[in-house]
Simulated assay, not measured.
Amino acid sequence: MHTLLYLTDLYYQAKGRKYYEEDLFITSQLKEHFNVLIGHPQQAIALSEHTDLIVFRNTGPVSAYQEYFDRFMGIAQEKNLRTFNSFDGKADMRGKQYLLDLYELSYPVIPTVEHFGGISKFPVSDQYVVKLRNGADSIGMEILTHKELFLNNPQDKLIQPFIDFQYEISFYYLNNSFQYALHAPIKEKRWELVEYESTKEDLSFAEQFIQWNNMKRGIMRVDACRQKDGSLLLVELEDLNPFLSLGLLNATKRKLFMEEFISALKKMEAEIEG
Rank of each mutant, 00 (worst) to 15 (best):
Y196M: 09
L81Y: 05
K96N: 03
A224P: 04
L174V: 04
L24Y: 13
D70C: 08
T199D: 04
E21K: 15
N176W: 01
L174P: 02
V130L: 08
Y65N: 03
A206Y: 10
K90C: 08
S245A: 13
K90N: 14
D88V: 07
A251V: 12
P108G: 03
E32M: 05
I159V: 07
F257S: 06
K96Y: 00
P154E: 05
D101N: 03
G39N: 05
E78V: 03
N214T: 06
Y65V: 01
F56N: 12
E192C: 03
I272A: 01
I26N: 01
I26C: 07
F25Y: 15
A76D: 06
M73S: 10
F178W: 08
E142R: 09
F69A: 05
I272N: 06
R71I: 06
K228L: 14
G135H: 00
N80G: 02
G230L: 07
K96H: 05
L158K: 03
G95R: 00
D229E: 11
L53N: 06
F25I: 02
M93T: 07
Y6P: 01
D92V: 15
A46V: 09
H2P: 14
Y11L: 12
K228T: 14
E104A: 14
K266L: 11
L24Q: 12
F162R: 09
E104N: 13
K189F: 10
E168H: 03
L24C: 09
W191K: 11
Y103C: 01
V109T: 12
K266G: 04
K200I: 10
F243E: 10
V36M: 04
S263D: 14
Q42F: 09
F56W: 15
